[in-house]
């Protein structure tokens, strides 16, 4: 088996919400009611090996981007451990700033690209700084990467705002790939692309993975893309991982009631008029999560037990874990 590249143990992240930082400080002195704490990611453990692609899926707001930013090392954790190639992030980063060879493609490309830099600089600068290419040859290097993500050579002298949404997303991908990371986190990185450009990008990522053993964490709402690209998939619900299995196993025999609901809703191209149904009942809020199993208000097989007890992840088949109190086996 390939070498372990990343390991997370019990990662959690909370945010204080609804008030400004100043207000929070004032509260502390004036002894006002404690501000609301939102637990965006709650005790998530993950591993990733070289050349492996892990998919992360789950409802909007369930904590995927927060988890991704912690893994990328750009968001501090509230608690938990992160290891890159066996070494804790803190000691790794203290030793050498760029030893963490993880890149992230952000969900929102506009806010992650410096608006004052031309695309040539955005994509090329880091590669030069990392010593991957001499400055004299950086232009060819950038043009080559841009071509691989399907952008014309004349893009290099343009600014981010002069591109379409999907073109900007590809600039973000090009920038990440330019520094030849060991691990790439893609947060909805192909969401704004039409299916043919999306296919081009996914094929490119699969090529790089085969050639250089690139490890990937791939966050997407598009279950078709997830199924196509990922080796394993983690399903999150309100901050927690509720099921994790190899991709084919998960799609063939999902066990957690939430995963089943998610896969049932998977859209297809058809000419039948689908009935778009409103969500039944209250949508659970991360600001005020349901007790016990977070999924109980929507779960068709919930029992009283589920309201009181937090289900822990447990293995139900080799490499297949889930957190449900009532589903025993496959």
């Amino acid at each position: 088996m390939n070498e372990m590249i990343f390991e997370a143990k019990d990662l959690s992240r909370s945010f204080t919400v609804g008030r400004s930082a100043l207000r929070n400080l004032a509260n502390r002195f004036l002894g006002e009611r404690t501000p609301t704490v939102l637990r965006a990611v709650d005790n998530v453990s993950l591993t990733l090996r070289e050349g492996e692609t892990l998919g992360v899926v789950g409802e909007s707001g369930c904590g995927k981007s927060t988890l991704a930013r912690m893994i990328a090392g750009i968001l501090p954790v509230s608690s938990g451990e992160r290891h890159f190639r066996g070494e804790p992030y803190d000691s790794l980063l203290a030793r050498k700033r760029d030893a963490l060879k993880i890149q992230m493609v952000f969900q929102d490309p506009l806010s992650s690209l410096n608006p004052r830099l031309r695309v040539g600089e955005i994509v090329g600068e880091a590669a030069v700084l990392h010593g991957l290419v001499p400055r004299s040859r950086v232009k060819d290097y950038v043009v080559d990467i841009l071509a691989r993500v399907g952008l014309p050579a004349d893009s290099i002298s343009r600014y981010p705002h002069q591109f379409s949404g999907g073109q900007r997303q590809r600039v973000g991908i090009a920038r990440s790939l330019a520094v030849k990371p060991d691990m790439l986190i893609c947060d909805e990185a192909v969401a704004a692309l039409d299916v043919s450009v999306q296919a081009q990008i996914i094929n490119l990522l699969m090529d790089i993975k085969r050639e250089s053993g690139l490890a990937m964490i791939f966050i997407s709402h598009d279950l078709g893309v997830i199924r196509h690209l990922c080796d394993r998939v983690a399903v999150m619900y309100l901050g927690r991982v509720v099921e994790l299995a190899e991709t084919e196993q998960l799609f063939a025999t999902p066990t957690h009631p939430y995963t089943r609901m998610l896969l049932d809703g998977m859209p297809k191209i058809s000419l039948e008029r689908r009935k778009f149904m409103p969500i039944q009942g209250e949508i659970p809020s991360p600001l005020n999560p349901p007790s016990g199993c977070h999924f109980h208000p929507r779960c068709p097989i919930a029992t009283e037990h589920c309201r009181r007890t937090r289900p822990e992840l447990r293995e139900i088949a080799s490499g297949h874990v889930h957190a449900c109190l009532n589903v025993e086996a496959l």
């Binding site: 909007s60 709402h221 969500i279």
Partner: peptide
């Protein structure tokens, strides 16, 4: 595009 199918629906 950035929404899961349940919320999309």
């Amino acid at each position: 595009t950035a929404l899961d199918v349940t919320i999309q629906a």
